[in-house]
Simulated scan of single mutants.
Amino acid sequence: MDPVALLAFNGGLQVFASSLLGMFMLVPLQPWGKGVATRVNMKSLLATHLDWLMLSFMQQGAAFMMSRWPETASPWTAWLLAFGGWTNVSPYLLRGFGINAFVLGGSWGQRAAAGIAVLSTAAILSAWSRLLLTMLSVLRR
């Protein structure tokens, strides 16, 4: 798959997912939905909502770089960013439902969630390192 198309589509999909979450976050504000707020951590869901948008814009920026400087277009980099774009929000999302994925400890579920969060951060960092190093070599020409 073309890395630019992958990142552009995936980034748009994440904006859509964040928008759906935003709609869900309106439910506790309705007279008939007040019970939802007692079951979820709304601050964590807000953090998830905003993080998905930021990760989407990060992918859109990478797609722009790859489209403008084709030497930087790497399917591997694009897949790492797409993976990180979905999984990097998991600690916030899970904390919204009572699982603390920020701590690598506790139950097996909490440890698995924290492990996924670590992998997502590593994926994003390695993808951006590769993208920026390739861009640096382009700029040196």
Rank of each mutant, 00 (worst) to 15 (best):
A8P: 07
F9D: 15
W128F: 13
A62R: 11
L29H: 05
A114D: 08
S56Y: 08
M54F: 13
T48Q: 04
F83Y: 15
A8K: 15
L80D: 05
I99P: 00
A113I: 13
V89G: 10
W69R: 00
S120A: 15
A47L: 11
L139Q: 00
G11L: 10
W69A: 00
Q14R: 15
A47Q: 08
G61I: 04
L139S: 00
L125T: 11
V27E: 04
V36K: 03
D51P: 03
E71R: 01
A127Q: 06
A114T: 08
F16I: 15
G96N: 01
V138E: 00
G84M: 12
I116R: 12
V89I: 15
L55D: 11
S19Q: 13
P75A: 07
F57C: 09
S129D: 08
L80I: 05
V89F: 09
R130K: 06
V27N: 03
F97V: 06
N100V: 05
L131C: 06
G109M: 06
L94T: 02
A62Q: 10
V27F: 04
L93M: 07
T121S: 12
L125A: 14
L45W: 02
S44K: 03
V89N: 07
I99E: 04
R39G: 07
W32N: 08
G85R: 14
K43G: 05
G12L: 13
W108H: 04
G33K: 02
W52T: 14
A47Y: 05
P28D: 01
L81F: 11
A101S: 09
G12P: 13
Q60D: 09
A62N: 10
V4H: 04
P3D: 03
A117K: 08
G84Y: 10
G96C: 01
S126V: 11
G35Q: 12
L45F: 05
A63F: 11
L94S: 04
T121I: 10
V118Q: 13
I116M: 14
K43V: 02
S107A: 04
W52G: 15
